[in-house]
């Protein structure tokens, strides 16, 4: 019991982390796309838990609202509309490339593990209070994120709005039905 209370945060962290990775593995192993999507939902929830554990409550809430709420619904809608019951990839295609894929995955994983384990990570944020400081006063995590985002990172924030506009333009270009283009293959005229 003493061990449990002394290492409570670490235990919760490892449980959440392992479940998050397991969810990620589930996404690519389940045959049914709905199961894959739900597995992804599990990963989103676990990551939200990790944010809360690190005292980034605002990020945790946003993770729940945007990813688990919005993006997940979008995924399920697409799966329903496209109506794929079962993904049956070309077996020959996968088996031919499987050894190479596994090899590069293992090499990349080993590289990451070596880099993270052999090096020393600093503690850029400091402790829990550092995530709640606004102009030298302890306020809330939401306020702190707001102050950083809208003051220090104002320029990237504004550019991201243009990025989203471009994404919308792209979605509309590919999604709309153009009168006059159907049946002609869009070929150049002589």
């Amino acid at each position: 019991m003493a061990f449990l209370s002394a290492h409570f945060v670490a235990i919760v962290f490892y449980v959440l982390a392992v479940l998050a990775v397991a969810g990620g593995v589930g996404v690519i192993t389940f045959k049914n796309p709905v199961h894959s999507a739900l597995s992804l939902l599990g990963t989103f929830l676990m990551v939200a838990g990790l944010f809360v554990l690190r005292h980034a409550e605002f990020l945790g809430a946003v993770q729940l609202l945007v990813y688990a709420g919005g993006i997940m619904v979008l995924f399920l809608f697409v799966i329903m509309l496209v109506n794929v019951r079962r993904l049956s990839p070309d077996a020959a295609f996968l088996s031919r490339r499987a050894p190479l894929a596994v090899l590069s995955g293992v090499v990349f994983g080993a590289l990451i593990a070596f880099g993270v384990l052999a090096g020393s990570l600093g503690h850029p944020g400091g402790g829990a209070t550092a995530l709640q400081m606004v102009q030298g006063h302890v306020m809330g995590n939401t306020e702190a994120v707001g102050w950083t985002l809208y003051r220090h990172f104002l320029v990237p924030f504004e550019i991201v709005s243009v990025v989203l506009l471009v994404a919308m333009i792209g979605a509309i270009i590919f999604g709309r039905k153009d009168a006059g283009l159907e049946g002609r293959g869009g070929r150049m005229e002589p």
Partner: peptide, 27 residues
């Protein structure tokens, strides 16, 4: 001058490129 602004600029350029490459959508 900051990795965040560099990355956001890169994404703006890249996303526009993806759409432009697929612009002739019936080909």
């Amino acid at each position: 001058a900051n990795l965040v602004s560099l990355y956001v600029g890169l994404e703006l350029m890249a996303l526009s490129q993806y759409v432009l490459v697929g612009y002739f959508k019936l080909e």
